[in-house]
Write a protein that binds this DNA or RNA. Structure first.
Lengths: 235, 235
DNA sequence: TGTACATCAGTGAACGCGCGTTCACTGATGTAC
DNA sequence: TGTACATCAGTGAACGCGCGTTCACTGATGTAC
């Protein structure tokens, strides 16, 4: 074993990535249900059995794609927020910028978006490794709200959700229990997150097709209203 | 041709329904992607080719299921609203009751819910016949809002969505343009509808699994907050 | 530096499966006289 | 009411397709002496 990677090892790593990339390209064309190991092999000019040197099964490729999708979406959101913060924007505007970044990514990668937020692929159950990348987006959103609370610009709710709290203790420990008068902040954050993903899902599946004229303007308007329910001020 | 149905005709109508029922049962087990014409035939003890006497293709069976699902969900919502009105409840409470009915139906029929609001089945495009039953739910929600506006209990928005309107003229004509100060009512109604369907979808696909402790209480709280964004007062 | 052996990438054939759809047919049901 | 013919439900075999996965193999790459 040398300090440098052997040629074999480098080739292996590269092909592993190439298989995932080909699968991703195919996912973009036919969707998750139509993704086939044989088709990926065909695209790469290899035999189907060769795939088994790199992934133990079709499901393992699917898992790789899911992880990739969560990471791509997560870093798109993080990048948008970082840029907004660098420009000195307030939390309300940061929220809108992140929403737009998420929507932009989803429109550019609709099948990958459906893979993580759409109907679960039948017969597939995601392993625990996908949890961490999945939280990158929610972490970003949570950061905006806690920054607003710290800056004193977060509007307390007119009618807070009455106790008891509906959030799992483990989550409260991870994020810290929001202090008064924001006890129900996490519940409201979940609503706002649901509105974001739900609106994009509806747009992508054509539910607004004959109803909304300007999808971009509608999205901005709706995300602003949604943010207000969590106490974020529009700009 | 007699005035009464011939035995053959009655048998035909019955089997047509029975095929749809079997397909529905199978959909509940394996989901839309796994639904197969051959399996339906097997369940009924018939040959696969016999199915073609009743439906022109697999897609036509799928269309029948989609129409059925929209109608079942629509009448669940209508029934809940009718009962709430009969009990003299105000629009805010009617909204909550309808939401609960929609959630109840979705939890009882998760695959049918996914069939109409989830990721579209690959290679299938819904024909125009499915549009009318699809509007039954949105009509019910719209009725609650217009009743509240007529009764003078609808709260005007603090920050209305500025012009221009984002709703297709055809929709404005069908429902009537909302009068001041409710010009953006349809946009807000769409948000509220998205929150309803999105929250249920997230619940069904397990997105709240390790976050929310009491899904029923969370749903009620969130639907109440969502309704407020359209001006509906909670009870 | 050269040789003997171990590791591992990739192949090609095969297994067993299920799918949607077509087609020529048999036999029962319905209709017109 | 009885008969001749038309309609139509349902069968069984077949077509052509694609899938995930296994397995014995060849030949190249890497390693230890």
């Amino acid at each position: 074993m040398s300090a440098y990677q052997t040629a074999r090892n480098r080739a292996r790593a590269e092909l592993t990535r190439e298989i995932a990339a080909t699968a991703r390209r195919q996912l973009a064309e036919v969707g998750a249900a139509g993704l086939s190991l044989r088709a990926v092999a065909r695209d790469l000019g290899m035999s189907p059995s060769a795939m088994y040197r790199y992934y133990r099964s079709r499901d393992e490729i699917l898992t790789a794609l899911i992880t990739e999708a969560y990471n791509a979406l997560g870093s798109a959101a993080e990048a948008a927020d970082a840029q907004a913060r660098a420009r000195g924007l307030d939390p309300g505007r940061r929220w809108l910028d992140v929403c737009r970044a998420v929507r932009g990514w989803a429109r550019a990668n609709p099948h990958e978006f459906a893979l993580i937020y759409g109907t679960p692929v039948p017969g597939y159950t995601a392993p625990a490794d996908t949890i961490a990348p999945a939280t990158r987006l929610t972490h970003t959103l949570a950061g905006i709200l806690t920054d607003a609370a710290a800056a004193g610009t977060l509007q307390p709710p007119a009618r807070p959700i009455p106790p008891p709290r509906l959030i799992h203790p483990a989550v409260l420990q991870a994020y810290g229990s929001p202090p008064a008068p924001f006890e129900d902040l996490i519940e409201r954050a979940l609503l706002v997150w649901t509105a974001l993903i739900g609106t994009i899902s509806f747009e992508l599946s054509g539910q607004f097709a004959n109803t909304v004229t300007d999808l971009t303007a509608y999205f901005d308007a709706v995300m602003t209203i949604a943010a207000e329910t969590a106490g974020l001020q529009p700009t």
